[in-house]
Design a protein around this nucleic acid. Structure first.
Length: 468
RNA sequence: GUCCCCAUCGUCUAGCGGUUAGGACAUUGCCCUUUCACGGCAGUAACCGGGGUUCAAGUCCCCGUGGGGACGCCA
């Protein structure tokens, strides 16, 4: 049988990092097994579902390059089908109408809580003869009273839960719309999902869902509950942990491949290997190798991977992702060096594309102030003479390239009888405004002759004025 | 509170009865170096506790403890 997995987010916000990993695992498993990956939008809660969220989720999937074979399928398009199943359950006697008010249920829960019991609906409407006037009832699934539900989770192993822990859950609201536990079951069955890979916050729902499936006379799919991702404080990842929306990682300068690689190693491993291409992941991913325990998100490791990908990916590939950041930081790259050259020059000193872009600024735009510390350290009174000598030497260079530029710098050192350490740093500050840049020949080459000379000149003027 | 789940360096993890408990990120030191980085080398650092089972336990079982999750006319 062909493997079919799915990712089934509810559109109540952006695609967050935990959801992305669940999607990744489902996607990988389908790829690994030569199966299909389906995207389903669980939008039965019409109050909270929004089109904007659907778009955000799709954007996230697209950015991460997690493609799906079918979908997106919207549950709101399938209400007729759910109604049909609810009716079937009603007809079979596996479901019943419940007329309890929300207040009544709340009182029940409170009293059970007070009695230190697990809050459960007491099935008081089951078999009820009198039909109250003017109340639109909900429909409840009649959960089996005895026995246990057993399933073998592909990551958690054998799980067993007694039916008397479960209660008669609502499968249709009073307005007739179906609820989650019903719709997942119907959809997974109808779409012939073979492996349900989802967050382990659903582990408690699984027995209920299995009972519904059995009542429908079907066999449940295989389940794999993947552990949660926690924030630095050990709590479930949420907004207060900062960047949790996948697109925020793009904005912060991460490469999708780095995020994917980071995510795949959170809860899954293959020996000691840390770096995986998408092809390798698809080839090696096994549910058996997924961890049982929750893991903590660690931005530093993500950064390390991100830099790794910035360094290792083909430059023109990186350049595609980089353009967004140039636009974001209002840097016009049309009158400066090719971005691919800039990447080569800076990739070893940036952990993110955002940083890389920021430090590439002086290649394209003039700065209006020197870095305070750098200026203080490098711009002394004798610096004027050094810069002047460099200016003179550099203006003689015809072929503006690494070798000739380097030669001038070396020659200047000799002429002035100074060490490179006295000549290089001030030049760097003059030409970039900062104390940090790639090696000087590369820096000058990329800035360009005309622009370099002008900046040196400016620095000389600035210094003369300063020490006048 | 009740039920479910989880537990190896600070973090991600390897380990599937016998290991000097391995790797990676981070961190520390050294080397390289015109800056910042990259890189190289070295180091610090872990089996939650208690009982069993066994010749032998990080590995299996039980009990604690700690953490997470679920307990909705949310998904």
């Amino acid at each position: 049988m062909k493997v079919r997995t799915r990712f089934a987010p509810s559109p109540t916000g952006y695609l967050h990092i935990g959801g992305a990993r669940t999607a990744l695992f489902s996607w990988l498993y389908a790829k690994k097994m030569g199966g299909d990956f389906i995207l389903r939008i669980e939008d039965t809660d019409r109050e909270r579902s929004t089109q904007a969220s659907v778009d955000a989720i799709m954007d996230g999937m697209k950015w991460l390059d997690l493609d799906f074979d079918e979908g997106p399928i919207y549950q709101t398009d399938r209400f007729d089908r759910y109604k049909e199943v609810i009716q079937q359950l009603l007809d079979q006697g596996d479901a019943y109408h419940c007329y309890c008010s929300k207040e009544e249920l709340e009182t029940l829960r409170d009293s059970q809580w007070a009695a230190k019991q697990k809050p459960r609906y007491d099935a008081r409407c089951f078999g009820r003869e009198d039909i109250p006037e003017g109340i639109e009832p909900v429909v409840r699934f009649r959960n089996p009273q005895d026995g246990t539900v057993i399933f073998d989770d592909q990551v958690r192993g054998h799980i067993e839960i007694s039916n008397n822990e479960l209660d008669d859950l609502i499968i249709a609201r009073s307005d007739g719309t179906p609820t989650y536990n019903l719709t997942v079951v119907v959809d997974d069955l109808d779409m012939e999902i073979t492996h349900v890979i989802r967050g382990d916050d659903h582990i408690n729902n699984t027995p209920r869902q299995i009972n519904i499936i059995r009542a429908l006379g079907k066999e449940p799919p295989i389940y794999a509950h993947v552990p949660m991702i926690l924030g630095d404080d050990g709590k479930r990842l949420s907004k207060r942990h900062g960047a949790v929306g996948v697109m925020q990682y793009r904005d912060d300068g991460y490469l999708p491949d780095a995020v994917i690689n980071y995510l795949v190693r959170l809860g899954w491993s293959h020996g000691d290997q840390e770096v995986f291409s998408r092809e390798e992941m698809q080839q090696l991913f096994l549910l058996d190798d997924v961890n049982k325990s929750a893991s903590t998100f660690n931005t530093e490791k993500l950064q390390w991977l991100n830099q790794h990908y910035i360094k290792e990916m083909p430059v023109d590939e990186v350049a595609k992702h980089l353009q967004w950041h140039f636009d974001d930081q209002d840097i016009d790259v049309t009158n400066g060096p090719a971005t691919t050259e800039v990447i080569d020059a800076l990739k070893e000193r940036a952990k993110t594309l955002k940083e890389l872009t920021a430090s590439a600024r002086y290649f394209y735009m003039d700065f209006d102030a020197y870095d305070e510390k750098a200026e203080k350290k490098q711009f002394k009174e004798p610096t004027v003479a050094i810069l002047q000598a460099l200016y003179d030497g550099l203006s003689e260079v015809n072929e503006w390239d690494l070798e000739p530029i380097h030669a001038v710098i070396v020659q200047t050192c000799e002429d002035l009888d100074l060490k490179l350490g006295k000549v290089g740093p001030p030049l760097r500050v003059a030409v970039t405004g900062t104390a940090m840049s790639p090696s000087l020949d590369v820096t000058l080459k990329l800035i360009g002759k005309e622009r370099s000379l002008r900046r040196i000149n400016n620095a000389i003027a600035y210094l003369k004025d300063k020490f006048a």
